[in-house]
Nucleic acid binder design. Structure first.
Lengths: 359, 359
DNA sequence: GTGAAAGCGCTAACAT
DNA sequence: ATGTTAGCGCTTTCAC
């Protein structure tokens, strides 16, 4: 009834304790589900918590414990459709484990990465999922030392030992290239990605090895590029200008492949009749009949789930094990862009070791 | 040199103070750029900070100040291409003001929204950008009371007074419909979105008013739907089955329009010859020559920037003003899907009051 | 089983 | 201009 008892701010542990007639430590125990609490107290505290609508402060918790229940996700470009799909999965999985997600755009710039990681450290994140690693993987690990566990995904890290979950990019590329060879293509073009991105490198490697295998009589053409549509368009135009357009073109990812499709259309060429086209990732869009793009599918959702699972396991294991890896299967989804026999009916060609060694 | 001085953890304000031979308050003043600090001390402290690589703890700051330098962004579905574009812009703008961004997926579910907002409150975010408001706008404002400023965007909130920055959806819809009418279309279909989404409602309203204007001799057809491709496909199929397919179809957003395109293709119909198609948002993808979709562009980047700007202004103004609004111009980007005279050359038809009253 | 007390890294009076 | 002190809301010994 006193005037000074005016505080209308959010209930704290203190106010709960007061209202329940116990000490804050008891409330703390109840909140954390500790065992050493009498039934009577527990019930009373629970009731008060309910009544007051008390919610523990994650900030205070983070300050004292050194951990916020947060995970950081590093992506090069959230506007690239692949990443939102991954982010969605990671967010879901993280939340299932009680973690909130902070997404950071690195733009594949080491300085940006560094700044973001500093911020994540300051936020006392429980762990970091790096989905767009590159040349600075080493620096990242050095920066966080053993303070924050890191799981790489999408792109295999360039440093060992490290924890990662990536798709069998090379295997997928081999399967895809073989599919194209089987279709009778002899001149196959590959629009590559940036060299610092290991997924791009592995896809290229798989392509090369398939082309160079002794059963193959195919010839490979290469064009440098990035992960953008623009990159695909440029490659096609260049090849066209040089008068040596391949009869089949692989984009290092679906965005590039879409760029390829676009430029081919502009040139008045038919897909797959004149040129077959395929990509990687099987992002949602390209499965549409409008594009009907053959693509190497990596289960993006599974990748996100596994990455979080790995991170959480790392978090809970006191020993800072490093070197946990998991390989996700990659399978070729054959669609109209590489096979004109296909109309409504798409085929699936499984592939990849899909083993997942677990140290 | 003592053994116990082993602590290798991150430098704190305390350790900086010690090393610089001053008190923590002085360090705090230096860090915050306070004026009342002697040149000598300031220099010494700066040097030590540099040397130790000290970074202030945002968590401790948040605990004492009640604010983390964070902004929450609520979106219905991060995998919908519109939102990553918005998120990117919001993140950039937020960071420019020193804020980090936390993205939350509400799935247009009030319960999810509520839970996420609770989390954001507990995180002591400086403000919230709600990009997917709906029936629960009222509840959201009630939940945060005056604790956290909220700016609505994309969808105009259903409650007044409130702060928002949205596009001139109705105006854009009118302009788009008029464009279709000018093209000679008399039966125009509109695939609507969920009723709780005001942007969808306003687009429909604009469509209706254009159709019903006295100059128009057009007839409007309506099909209920959501914001998904599926929604567009179903509408087309239904109309087709009923034998009353319009000669022009507007999707409530680009995703729906793409679904429309897809189903038309499956039915073997030509765009724009048999049916013209248009959408809203002008997301990056649909500008591609592959789709060449006519769309009502709202400057997504500008929308994000303005939303953050508004939020920051709200944050800095002690008075909790409510009722700040801004309307973004909407313009019809005419492409091949509604005009077969167009090939490489796209036209722009500006529209919208584009005023932006500013209370 | 429960409480008292120290302290996480800061900011903000209030001294001086 | 600078130092001292009291918290912010919690967890965590350590007593009892």
């Amino acid at each position: 009834m006193t005037l000074r008892n005016f505080k209308s701010s959010a209930p704290t542990m203190h106010s709960v304790a007061e209202a329940a007639g116990v000490s804050v430590s008891t409330v703390s125990r109840v909140v954390r589900g500790h065992v050493d609490v009498g039934e009577a107290s527990r019930a009373r505290v629970q009731a008060v918590i309910e009544e007051l609508g008390y919610r523990p402060s994650p900030i205070a918790r983070a300050l004292v414990s050194g951990h916020s229940m947060t995970i950081g996700l590093l992506v090069s470009d959230i506007a690239n459709p692949f990443y939102p799909q991954l982010a969605k999965s990671v967010e879901r999985a993280a939340r299932k484990h009680g973690y909130a997600l902070v997404i950071c755009n690195t733009e594949d710039d080491p300085r940006e990465t560094k700044k973001h990681v500093e911020m994540l450290e300051d936020l006392r994140v429980g762990g970091i999922v790096q989905a767009s690693g590159g040349a600075d993987d080493q620096a990242l690990l050095k920066q966080v030392r053993d303070r924050v566990p890191v799981v790489f995904t999408n792109r295999r890290p360039s440093v060992e030992p490290s924890n990662y979950v990536v798709a069998d990019n090379a295997g997928g590329a081999v399967a895809l290239t073989e599919h194209l060879l089987e279709q009778g293509h002899l001149r196959i073009g590959f629009v590559a990605g940036p060299e610092f991105a290991s997924n791009a490198a592995e896809r290229l490697k798989g392509f090369r090895s398939a082309i160079e295998s002794r059963e193959s009589r195919g010839q490979g053409l290469l064009h440098a590029g990035s992960f953008s549509m623009e990159s695909g368009r440029i490659a096609v135009q260049d090849w066209w200008d040089e008068g040596r357009l391949p009869t089949a073109i692989i984009g290092v990812n679906d965005l590039v492949a879409v760029g390829v499709l676009e430029q081919l259309m502009i040139l008045g060429l038919k897909v797959p009749d004149d040129v077959a086209v395929a990509g990687f990732d099987d992002i949602e869009l390209v499965g549409s009949k409008l594009l009907s793009l053959t693509s190497v599918r990596q289960d993006i959702e599974q990748m996100g789930i596994e990455a979080v699972k790995m991170l959480v396991r790392l978090l809970h294991s006191e020993s800072r094990v490093a070197g946990v890896r998991k390989i996700i299967r990659a399978q070729v989804i054959v669609r109209g862009s590489t096979s004109y026999r296909l109309t409504a009916l798409d085929q699936i060609r499984p592939r990849g070791r899909g083993v997942g060694s677990q140290l």
